[in-house]
């Protein structure tokens, strides 16, 4: 684990960390909506500075926040180029074969890239300041009304939270199995695709087997400790303090601003 996985939780202490996860989720949605409806320069400046302020407040090191963008650099470049090359418009600057470069196309590319960057920044801000457990609890609580239409919210959330909690466990085990197979002569770093695919069986089968074994053991352990599928998720009272209100107001303001301009 020499690289931080994308969107990993970082246990600092900050204003953003201490905001209730449900409020954070709702604010996050409002901000994503604002990102999508923005299409003016002023709009982008406002929303970029909002993202900037949130990152500063959440005390995530800038290096980590930007590293997730850096890792997506090829994706960003590709979507920019695709938009710039294939956008059909009348004001064509350069045209060659099936490629048409136009002012609108380039602008469109910039828009799309900016949007992806903003969404990435906001989601980093959310997942880095909220532990996965908090996040699923928030989802559970927000989806509570769905139980009136007979959707087993409690069970679904239990499944999601177990899945999330097992990601680090299984990835740790995957790493161990990879090392074990490497130690006995597997070559995962091979360049040839077919060879790589063949070799990956040595990883995939043991990992699946162990995931199934774990699931089995966990199910038994849960039953042994008296787990009964709870249909109604626990009710958690929401205490709103200044922080939560501030979060709501800021995201609502940003969203409203984007709708107006």
């Amino acid at each position: 684990m020499n690289r931080m996985p994308l969107g990993m939780y970082m246990p600092f202490e900050s204003v953003i960390h201490s905001i209730d996860a449900r409020v954070k989720l709702v604010c996050f949605l409002a901000l994503i909506v604002s990102v999508i409806i923005t299409d003016t320069l002023v709009g982008y400046i406002v929303i970029l500075s909002t993202a900037f302020v949130f990152i500063v407040l959440s005390r995530i090191p800038f290096k980590i926040a930007l590293s997730c963008l850096y890792r997506l650099r090829f994706f960003l470049i590709i979507i920019f180029v695709m938009n710039a090359l294939f956008f059909t418009s009348e004001n064509i600057l350069v045209s060659w074969w099936i490629f048409n470069i136009s002012k609108e196309g380039i602008l469109q590319g910039v828009h799309v890239v900016l949007r992806v960057v903003l969404v990435m920044l906001f989601s980093t801000c959310l997942t880095a300041t909220t532990s996965p457990v908090e996040l699923t609890k928030a989802l559970e609580s927000l989806f509570r009304p769905l139980r009136y239409v007979k959707i087993p919210v409690g069970q679904i959330c239990m499944i999601i939270s177990i899945a999330i909690q097992f990601i680090p466990v299984i990835s740790q085990e995957a790493l161990l199995i990879k090392q074990a197979q490497t130690a006995r002569g597997a070559r995962f770093e091979s360049r040839r695709l077919i060879e790589k695919a063949k070799e990956s069986l040595a990883l995939v089968i043991p990992i699946f087997l162990s995931a199934i074994r774990r699931a089995d053991e966990l199910a038994l352990a849960m039953e042994a400790r008296g787990y009964r599928s709870a249909n109604t998720p626990e009710k958690r009272s929401l205490k709103l303090s200044l922080r939560e209100y501030a979060g709501f107001v800021v995201s609502a303001a940003v969203c409203a601003l984007q709708i107006m301009i």
Partner: peptide
């Protein structure tokens, strides 16, 4: 080929 390593619970690596 010179250094072999047997991991903890090596039975999990059989496939």
């Amino acid at each position: 080929s010179y250094v072999g390593m047997v991991f903890q619970n090596p039975e999990y690596q059989l496939f």
